[in-house]
Structures are given as structure tokens and as C-alpha cells.
């Protein structure tokens, strides 16, 4: 089995879940080829080998500087047609979902999107993926011949250990689309400054209706900062206008699975659970001892988040130095 893995990167920073995809590719296949597209991506090509790729197809070009749908889809589909891999994987990020689905359409291939389990049975991929608002898993399988595409949910598969002594071949490839035939231009980009991406975060501290207003997120953010974690919110807090939508976790927000999810002033509606129930350890802080979030949590403190969060921040500061 030959496995392709698209290594997603933005401004020279690789997406961590791409390495998880390489780790899974090593289990599924005999040879693993990393597709590294961008501008100035030599270090990422080398890192892909350290994480487990046998070979890298590297396209280094100004037209690929930002991830754009048309040039990325066209080039990946072209490489798949040329090399005919059995499996093509990528992280199920916003870009990964778009680009891999597009490339699968170009080569008329089977695709299993946003999976949390993936295995091979008689040469065909079989996957489990959360559906119906994350309330159940759907088991799905490839039924057709030809290349099989899948995108992997961040943090659902183990991160491989990089090995700086691993070696592999790096082959340069050229983009397919010239700049003047690409219909889109990225005019500007705003990064979430100094914040950890929710889908990559190993620790998340989230606030809900109980924070009471925009200023109520201050202790939530303080604890997140102490833990080097990301700041999240329930739909109630976002809809109230207390915090921007990009922080929303839940059925109509982001789906996360950190090692630690601290939910403060969040009752735990089923739609919120859909976004965070695969977290490894959930801590609930709520004044209402009957809040549904306590049924999901490993640890709970019944109390006022405005007392508990600062005390927790202080205790973590003392213990973690």
C-alpha cells in the first residue's frame, strides 16, 4: 500500500495533525509519501521525513504561498493521477477538508471525511466518524476501486515521535496552474494573535452563560493563559455577543478534543457536548449541581466560577511554576 499524506502548512508552520496523519499512514501502508506544498518549505519537507515519510514530493512556488482551493486541489489531483497511490490522507482542518474533497472529486475517488478511526479491511478503508451532531458514530467503508481519500480529525490519532536520523528522498515538483489562471487572491489575513488554535490545543478553558458578560471572560482567559491553553465559549456566550464566534465550541462551532477541557458556567446542553465530549478529561465548574455538564465531567466543583477560576489559576501557578 502506497500512502500519500498532504502536509498542511501556513506561513512555514506545519499543522500538527499532519504529523498524526503520517503516523497513521505508517501503520496502514508500506511506503509513505508526503506532499509538501508552499513557498520556502524545505524545513517542513525534512520534518515530514523525520516524522515518518519515506519520500517527499515538494512544490515550492509563489502561487502556493497561501493555501488556495484551485492551485492546491489541481496539483494534488495531478500528483495522485501521476503516482496512483492507494490512499491519500490529510488533517481534517478547514483547509484539509476543502482541498482533499476537491482532489477526490477531480480523480473520481472514494472519500471518508473527518474520521476518528480508520482501518484497512481487504484493501478497503473503513472508518468511524461522529455524525448527527456528534451524538453517534457512523461506520462507513469504501466500496469502489481506485485511490481512497480520508481526512483525519485533529488529535484523534497518536502523534508519532520524530526521528532526526531518518532519511528519505525529496523530489521537486512544479505547480500545475499559472498565477494568471487562478481565480482567487488572498488580499489580507488576520491571525488570532497570541492565541492557541482550538483544534490543536491540549488544554481548553471555556466559559458559558454563567460568565455573565464580556468582562466575565477575564478569569476564564487568565486560567487559559496560565495553562498555555486556548479560550473557548458556549453558544449562549457567543450569541450574547460576549466573545467572537471563532471561540465557539459545539454543534454549530468547533469540535475539539483536548487532554483537559475546563467548562466554567456552562450547563452542558447536548449541542455543546457535541463539540467537546471526546476531550480526555473534563472538569466542570458550575453553581448548579444538577447541570448536565457534571454527568460528562471527571471532576467537578460546585461553586461560583468567579471564586473558583482565580483560585485554580493561583494553584496552577504555584504548582507549575
Amino acid at each position: 500500500m502506497n500512502v500519500f499524506v498532504w502536509i498542511e502548512q501556513h506561513n512555514g508552520t506545519p499543522v500538527a495533525a499532519s504529523w498524526e496523519a503520517i503516523g497513521l499512514a505508517r501503520q496502514l501502508g508500506d511506503t509513505v509519501t508526503a506532499l509538501v506544498l508552499g513557498q520556502g518549505v524545505d524545513d517542513i519537507a525534512q520534518a515530514a521525513i523525520h516524522y515518518g515519510a519515506d519520500a517527499v514530493l515538494k512544490a515550492d512556488d509563489a502561487t502556493l504561498a497561501q493555501v488556495r482551493f484551485e492551485p492546491y486541489v489541481t496539483l494534488i489531483a495531478h500528483l495522485v493521477q501521476q503516482h496512483n497511490p492507494d490512499i491519500v490522507l490529510a488533517a481534517a482542518t478547514i483547509s484539509g477538508r476543502e482541498v482533499l474533497a476537491g482532489a477526490a472529486a477531480d480523480v473520481n475517488a472514494a472519500m471518508l471525511p473527518d474520521v476518528i478511526e480508520l482501518s484497512l479491511e481487504d484493501g478497503k478503508l473503513s472508518a468511524a466518524r461522529p455524525v448527527l451532531g456528534g451524538k453517534v458514530l457512523s461506520v462507513e467503508a469504501v466500496t469502489a476501486d481506485g485511490p481512497q481519500f480520508a481526512t483525519l480529525r485533529s488529535r484523534a490519532f497518536p502523534m508519532p515521535e520524530p526521528d532526526a536520523n531518518r532519511s528519505g528522498t525529496i523530489t521537486e515538483v512544479s505547480p500545475v496552474l499559472a498565477d494568471d489562471v487562478i481565480a482567487s487572491r488572498v488580499e489580507s489575513a488576520a491571525e488570532l494573535s497570541g492565541q492557541v488554535s482550538l483544534t490543536d490545543a491540549s488544554v481548553i478553558v471555556a466559559g458559558g452563560r454563567g460568565v455573565g458578560g464580556p468582562e466575565g471572560f477575564a478569569p476564564v482567559k487568565e486560567l487559559a493563559d496560565v495553562l498555555g491553553g486556548a479560550l473557548a465559549a458556549s453558544r449562549a456566550a457567543v450569541d450574547a455577543g460576549w466573545i467572537p464566534y471563532e471561540h465557539q465550541v459545539g454543534q454549530t462551532g468547533k469540535v475539539v478534543s483536548p487532554d483537559l477541557y475546563i467548562a466554567a458556567g456552562i450547563s452542558g446542553a447536548i449541542q455543546h457536548q457535541a463539540g467537546m465530549r471526546t476531550s480526555k478529561v473534563i472538569v466542570a465548574i458550575n453553581r448548579d449541581a444538577d447541570a448536565p455538564i457534571f454527568r460528562l465531567a471527571r471532576y467537578g466543583i460546585v461553586g461560583d466560577l468567579f471564586d473558583v477560576l482565580p483560585a485554580l489559576a493561583e494553584a496552577f501557578r504555584n504548582r507549575l511554576g
Binding site: E187, L192, T199
Partner: peptide, 11 residues
């Protein structure tokens, strides 16, 4: 929206 923040894109 992007995973890293947001973008303005023309097409």
C-alpha cells in the same frame, strides 16, 4: 474563517 483566524479573499 480559517483555522488560524480570517482572510479577505477576492475571486
Amino acid at each position: 474563517l480559517t483555522e488560524q483566524g480570517s482572510q479577505v479573499v477576492s475571486s
